[in-house]
Design a binder for these strands. Structure first.
Lengths: 347, 347
DNA sequence: CACTAGATAGAAAGCGCTTGCTGTCACGCT
DNA sequence: AGCGTGACAGCAAGCGCTTTCTATCTAGTG
C-alpha cells in the first residue's frame, strides 16, 4: 500500500541499501545510480518512514521547545527565534529537523509528560523556556529527566530559565531588571509602590520581586507586605490586582507589574478608577513586548532580548555554537523609560 | 545501555509481549502480573522507544499544528486551543499525544517541508491554521500533500483557512467581517477610507479586502486604488503604510487595518502625525486580540472566536467531534465597536 | 601484464516494539 | 468424570530502515 524503500530499490534496480545511502548522502554512490534512484523516488512519490529510520539509526531529527504559554508573545517570540536556528525547513540551518513547540500551560505534570514524550521520541535536543516552578519534588523530577535525556544524547538547553546542574542555560537577569525598574521609580520620588507579582511558585516571579525589594531596601523604604499581590501572568490578573492594591492603599503612586501584559491590565484598572497615568499613578511593566510601546502612555519596562537569547539557545542546541563558559550565560535587561512613569503628584 | 522492553520483561519474569500489553492496556493481563511489570518498569526507569513502537504499530501519537507566525498571538491563541483539545499531556483528552506546533513563518517551502516531515512521522493528525498562500503551484503541491496524508490515515483539518477539497475546514468569514467593519465606518459618515492590507498573496488579505470593497461599492463610494496599501501583518507595516496613505491623501478620515497589530502601528503613525483618534481619523482593526481593548482609544475591530474555532478543529482532528456538514463550517466575526472609530470631522 | 588500492554495490543482521496465533490452565457444566 | 470455555501468557514474525562487512570491478603501478 504505502511505498517503501524496497519499492524504490526495485524500481531503480538497485538494492535497498543503495537507496538509503542516496537519501542520506553519507556514502559514495555513483552519479548515474543516484540519479536513477532519485527518479524512482520522485515517480513513486516516496516518503521516508520516520519511525523506521529513527529506529534503525537510533537518532531522530525532532527538537522540542517547551513553553509555558504559547498564546503569550513572550514565549512566541522566543520559540520563533529558537526554531529559526534549529533549522526547521528552510531555516538558517542545513539539516531538516522538525522543531516542535510544546505548550505546558505552566503545569508541572504537562512539562514532565512532554519531557517523557520527547525522550520517548529520542529527540535530538530539547529547549526549555521561561520560568521554572519552584517545587522541590517537581524540580527533582525534571532534573532527573533532564539527566536521562542528556545521557541518551539529547542536548538540553534552558532559555530564560534559571540554571540547573543538568543543562546549559541562557538566563535572564530578572532580579537585576526588577531592581532597575524600582530604582527608576524611587528615583522619580515614589515611596508608596504597589507590586503585582506573577504566580507565587515561579522563579521569574520570585526573582523580579526580589529585585524590587532589594531596591526598596536600598532606598530605606519599608516593604509593606500589603503592597504586593500575587496573580497570573495575564491582563485580567493585572486588572484585578490593581483594584485590590488601590483598595488596600488608595494613596499609591506607582504600580510595578510582573510583566507587560499585566501592566496593561493595571492601566485599564487605573483608568477605570479615574486615575491618570502617570500623573496620578505611574505604571511599569517587564519584557518590552511589541505592544508595550503602543500603550498610551507608552509603557516603561525592562527590555529582554528574547530574540537574541532564543537564537543563541537554538544554536547551542544544534551544536553550532559552543556553550557559554561554565554552562551559564546571564542576559541583562535594559530599562526602557517611557511615558507611563513620572514623578508622583505633589502631596 | 538503554533499557528496553526485553529488560523489563526479564526483570518481571514475563515475556516482552506481556510487557507491551501492560503498557498499552488493550489486552487482558492478570492484575498480579501487571503489577509486577509496572514495578519493573518503575525500577528500571523504562521509557518506551517511540520510533520502534510507531514502526511496529504503524501509528504514531504525533499531531502537527502548522502556524504562519508563532510570535503572533493570533496563532498562539488558536494553537493553544487546538493543543488543549488534542490532549497533549494532561489536556482534556485522554490519550497522550504529542501535539506540536510548527512555525512556517508564512513561507510556502517551509509549509510543504513541515507537511512532509509530518507525513514522514506518520502523524495522527495535522491542523493547518491561518490564511493560505494563493499561488497555484503551491496550492497544488499542498493539496497533493494533504491528499497523501489523508490516504495514509492522517486526519487533516483546516482552521481559519479557506476550505479545500482535501480537508475538513473551520473557516473564518473574513470577507463578511471586512464588510461589517467598513459598513460601520460608512454608517458613521466616512467617505475617504484608507485600507492597509496584508501580504498580497494571502487569502486572508484578499478576503478582508473584498469585504471592504463590497461595502464601499454598496454605498456607492468609488474605490480609489490609491487608498489601498499592501504590507505585512505587523506593527511596523501598519505604521509605514499609514504614513504612505496620509501622504497620498491627507484628507483621509478613516483607516481600516489588516489586523489589530497593524492597526496599532497605524495609531502610532497617526499620533506621530499629530492627528487625534477618532476625532481626526478613525481606525479599525481585525481579530480582536487581547491587547486591542487596551489601546487608547480602544480599538474597534471584528472579533474572531479563535479559541472556539481552535477547540473545535482540535476535537475534529481527534475524531471526538464529527465534521461539519459538507466538511465546511464558516465562523462569523462579530463587530466590536469601541472608541477608535467615530464620526468624521465636519468639513 | 600481474597486482593492489579505491570506488561502488549488495547481503544480511539487526533496531525495539506489536500482535496474530498458539498454547496452558483452571473452572464450571452436563 | 469428561470436556467445552474463558482467561492469560508466550512465540515468533515482522514493521521499514541503517549499516557493517563482504564482493566486485576498474584503474593505477612497477
Amino acid at each position: 500500500m504505502t511505498v517503501t524503500l524496497a519499492d524504490v530499490a526495485a524500481r531503480a534496480q538497485v538494492s535497498p541499501a543503495t537507496v538509503s545511502r542516496v537519501l542520506n548522502g553519507n556514502y559514495p554512490v555513483a552519479a548515474s545510480t543516484r540519479e536513477r534512484v532519485l527518479k524512482a523516488v520522485d515517480e513513486l512519490d516516496y516518503v521516508l518512514n520516520g519511525p523506521a529510520s529513527a529506529l534503525a539509526a537510533a537518532t531522530s531529527d525532532l527538537v522540542g521547545i517547551l513553553v509555558n504559554d504559547i498564546a503569550d508573545p513572550f514565549f512566541g517570540i522566543m520559540a520563533s527565534a529558537i526554531q529559526n536556528e534549529i533549522g526547521g525547513p528552510g531555516g538558517r540551518a542545513g539539516g531538516e529537523r522538525l522543531a516542535v513547540v510544546c505548550n505546558t500551560g505552566g503545569s508541572p505534570e504537562r512539562e514532565l509528560t512532554y519531557l517523557t514524550l520527547l525522550q520517548r521520541q529520542r529527540a535530538a535536543a530539547v529547549v526549555l523556556t521561561g520560568g521554572a516552578i519552584e517545587n522541590p519534588a517537581h524540580l527533582n523530577a525534571v532534573g532527573h529527566k533532564l539527566r536521562k535525556l542528556a545521557e541518551a544524547g539529547t542536548r538540553v538547553v534552558l532559555c530564560g530559565r534559571p540554571p540547573t546542574p543538568e543543562a546549559i542555560a541562557i538566563t535572564f537577569d530578572n532580579r537585576g531588571g526588577g531592581q532597575l525598574l524600582t530604582e527608576h521609580l524611587i528615583g522619580l520620588g515614589h515611596r508608596r509602590l504597589g507590586y503585582i507579582a506573577g504566580p507565587e511558585e515561579r522563579t521569574t516571579t520570585r526573582h523580579r520581586l526580589e529585585g524590587h525589594r532589594a531596591a526598596l531596601a536600598a532606598a530605606g523604604i519599608e516593604d509593606d507586605a500589603r503592597r504586593t499581590v500575587y496573580g497570573r501572568y495575564d491582563r485580567l490578573s493585572g486588572y484585578e490586582a490593581t483594584l485590590e492594591l488601590l483598595r488596600r492603599d488608595p494613596t499609591l503612586t506607582a504600580v510595578v507589574a510582573a510583566n507587560d501584559t499585566v501592566a496593561l491590565g493595571a492601566c485599564a484598572a487605573l483608568r477605570d478608577s479615574g486615575l491618570r497615568i502617570p500623573d496620578d499613578v505611574s505604571v511599569a511593566g517587564f519584557d518590552d513586548l511589541p505592544f508595550s510601546i503602543d500603550a498610551v502612555p507608552a509603557l516603561t519596562t525592562v527590555r529582554l532580548p528574547l530574540t537574541e537569547a532564543g537564537a543563541r539557545a537554538g544554536r547551542i542546541a544544534m551544536g553550532r555554537e559552543e556553550a557559554p563558559h561554565g554552562g551559564i550565560a546571564t542576559v541583562r535587561g535594559e530599562l526602557m523609560v517611557r511615558g507611563s512613569t513620572g514623578a508622583p503628584r505633589a502631596e
